[in-house]
Amino acid sequence: MITATHYLVLSACLFGIGAVGVMVRKNLITLLLSIELMLNAVNLNLIAFSHQWGDMLGQVFAIFVMAVAAGEAAIGLGIITAIYRNRGTVEADQVRGMEG
């Protein structure tokens, strides 16, 4: 019997992997890919709870999360393209313009 807990455990594992990816990788594009992974884990949680309590609200919020993920990808990749054009690198530790 697959319950909501199964989905929540899978979602927690996906979120943890995404969080590790944000912290250990240096490539800015891989960082954005990891953030998308974490947003997907959140969506999985919302769907699991929507099914658990018979409420459509979780699916509505999953749509909002998807829209925010699309906007974040568009702006983030635009910023990464601009950084690459102006600095010649997409490594997070090479871009240190805001260090004190």
Binding site: A12, A19, V20, M23, V24, K26
Partner: peptide
């Protein structure tokens, strides 16, 4: 390709998943 902070990051990530 790995950031020097990767041991701390793995510990933090596993801790986050374990807490959840």
């Amino acid at each position: 390709r790995w950031h020097p902070q990767w041991p701390a990051a793995v510990v933090l990530g596993l801790g986050l998943a374990a807490t959840l």
